[in-house]
C-alpha cells in the first residue's frame, strides 16, 4: 500500500489541526481560488509589513474547504512563509512547485529539503497527478495575493 507515502503523519496532523486558519484583519490583499475539478476552494489574505527595505510576510490567514491534502498544504504553507521576506518566501513556493513536478520531470534538480522543511512531506503527492492541484491550491492563492499586495504598495 502506498497510501501511507501520500498521507504522511505530518500531513494528517496539519489536516486535523490546521495552523493560521481563519480570516484575520488587517490585510493588504484577499483572493479566492477554486479547483474547478473538485470544487475545493480557499479564500486567502496576505498582510505585508513594510520594513523600509523588502516587505516581510506579516500574516497569512485563510478559510478553506477541501480535502486533507489541500487543507494540510495551506497550513504548512502559512507556517513556512509567515515571517519571511517576500522574495525568500517566493523561493520556498518555487521549490514546492518543483517538488510537485518532480515525478513528471525526474531529471530536474532535486527539491531543497532545507528550504521546504515540513512541505517535503508532500513528496508522495507528486506521484498522483490528480492530487497535485490539491497541494498547490493554497500556494497559488498565496502567490496571487502577495503579488496583488505588492502592486498595492506602488499605488
Amino acid at each position: 500500500m502506498q497510501l501511507e507515502s501520500m498521507y504522511q503523519e505530518i500531513i494528517l496532523d496539519h489536516y486535523r489541526n490546521p495552523h493560521h486558519k481563519g480570516l484575520r484583519e488587517p490585510f493588504d490583499a484577499e483572493v479566492h481560488h477554486v479547483n474547478p475539478v473538485c470544487g475545493d476552494e480557499v479564500t486567502l489574505r496576505v498582510a505585508l509589513k513594510d520594513t523600509g527595505g523588502e516587505p516581510v510576510v506579516e500574516d497569512v490567514s485563510y478559510d478553506s474547504l477541501g480535502c486533507s491534502i489541500s487543507q494540510a498544504s495551506a497550513s504548512v504553507m502559512s507556517d513556512l512563509v509567515i515571517g519571511k521576506p517576500v522574495s525568500e518566501a517566493m523561493t520556498v513556493g518555487d521549490a514546492f512547485v518543483s517538488l510537485m513536478r518532480s515525478n513528471a520531470a525526474p531529471d530536474a534538480a532535486p527539491p531543497d529539503e532545507d528550504v521546504l522543511e515540513d512541505a517535503m512531506a508532500f513528496a508522495g503527492v507528486a506521484k498522483y497527478p490528480a492530487r497535485i492541484k490539491c497541494a498547490l491550491l493554497a500556494w497559488m492563492a498565496w502567490k496571487d495575493a502577495t503579488a496583488r499586495a505588492m502592486e498595492g504598495d506602488h499605488d
Binding site: 500500500m1 497510501l3 475539478v37 473538485c38 477541501g66 480535502c67 486533507s68 491534502i69 498522483y128
Partner: peptide, 20 residues
C-alpha cells in the same frame, strides 16, 4: 473529504468518481 475517500478506493482497485 470525497477526494480522500476516492484515494483510498483507488488504492484498493475501486474506481469511483469524486467531486461535484
Amino acid at each position: 473529504h470525497p477526494h480522500d475517500v476516492g484515494q483510498v478506493l483507488d488504492e484498493l482497485g475501486v474506481a469511483a468518481r469524486t467531486g461535484h
